[in-house]
């Protein structure tokens, strides 16, 4: 129970060593450079699509008004138009806030016993929300920045993101803010699971694994950029070969790059079958994307079939004589 993070940690170490051994000793550059990335991307795309299609098939028979605000009812009761939307517009605003600002996490509370006496208190716990935002947005920035390796000529918007990210101009190659924010935020998310006893108790290996995997990806990437230095032009000719379906494998690429690439492939393969699918799932969360108009409209279960009912009158017709015989009161005498 206690050391689930160790399983995840060992898994990550094995995943790092795997390409190291295979490339150093067996020279499997083509497998790790070409076959695995294409397979991983295909699994990611097909897995993602099949998951979402599966979800789209599931029944949504009724609205779930588990809301965080007053539902629209009588005119003199003030309704909360965003937290309990009864119009489509309200739902759109609620979804946008959820997707771009993680509004549900913003309401995260912490439960504790009051210092002054045996009283339970719920306090507002903001850090998870702050670091979750930092993590997701810096990860997005890192991904956008990486598009410089996959496009030629490079679109202006990617260059602009890169310029803004490197605005501090510290060191050469200059540091990118997003990489450090990403590392800090993900370390917080990992330590949070380890340090808070309640969170640690409910955490599974599947919770630690993606965190550690992303930490390993970030560290291997930063190691290449800031410490070991790699042949960037060689790597770009390799990545461009991949996206143009004319794979080339330059000899100048270091093993660390293959480790980085293999970990990213692992993340892609792992993605559709794990909790990471909240990326698609957030759009389909029924408590967020349905209008709370249960008081305005009657929602009838679409697959309701006519139920055969046996009324009391019919029951009495069936057993009237026996009931009278037993002295039970009947509504209709014979």
């Amino acid at each position: 129970m206690e050391d689930k993070y160790k399983f995840a940690g060992i898994a990550i170490i094995v995943l790092c060593c795997f390409p190291l051994v295979c490339i150093k000793f067996l020279g499997m550059r083509y497998v790790f450079g070409v076959l695995i990335p294409y397979t991983a991307l295909s699994i990611f795309l097909l897995g993602f699509i099949s998951k979402v299609i599966g979800w789209s098939m599931s029944a949504v028979p009724f609205r779930i008004p588990t809301t965080c605000g007053q539902q629209e009812s009588l005119p003199w009761i003030k309704a909360n138009k965003i937290d309990c939307p009864f119009t489509k517009k309200g739902v759109v605003i609620r979804m946008l806030l959820e997707i771009f600002a993680f509004r549900s996490l913003f309401r995260n509370t912490k439960f504790s016993m009051d210092k002054n006496g045996p009283k339970m208190t719920f306090s507002w716990e903001l850090w998870l929300w702050v670091f979750a935002l930092a993590f997701h947005y810096s990860f997005l920035t890192v991904i956008i920045r990486h598009m410089r390796f996959f496009t030629d000529p490079i679109p202006l918007c990617i260059t602009i993101v890169e310029k803004l990210d490197g605005i501090l101009q510290i060191g050469l190659p200059g540091i990118f803010i997003s990489g450090f924010v990403l590392l800090g935020a993900i370390c917080f998310l990992f330590l949070r699971r380890i340090m808070i006893p309640q969170v640690r108790y409910i955490s599974l290996a599947a919770d630690y694994f993606p965190l550690l995997l992303i930490i390993a990806i970030v560290l291997s990437g930063m190691y290449m950029r800031y410490i070991s230095k790699v042949d960037v032009v060689g790597i770009k000719s390799f990545t461009m070969g991949l996206v143009m379906f004319k794979p080339v494998i330059p000899d100048t690429i270091s093993v660390m790059f293959y480790i980085h690439l293999f970990l990213v492939c692992t993340l892609l393969v792992y993605f559709p079958f794990s909790k990471l699918m909240h990326m698609g799932g957030i759009f389909l969360s029924p408590t967020r994307n349905l209008t709370c108009d249960t008081r305005q409209k009657r929602h009838i279960n679409p697959w309701n079939y006519p139920v055969k009912v046996h009324t009391y009158e019919e029951y009495e017709d069936d057993f009237r004589e026996k009931m009278i015989e037993a002295g039970l009161p009947v509504e209709k005498e014979s």
Binding site: M147, F150, T151, D152, P153, P155, V233, G234, K236, S237, M240, V243, M244
Partner: peptide, 13 residues
């Protein structure tokens, strides 16, 4: 995106 964006571009190192 990278697959269709680069269609027709001749990227040479």
């Amino acid at each position: 995106f990278p697959f269709w964006y680069n269609l027709g571009n001749a990227s040479v190192a």
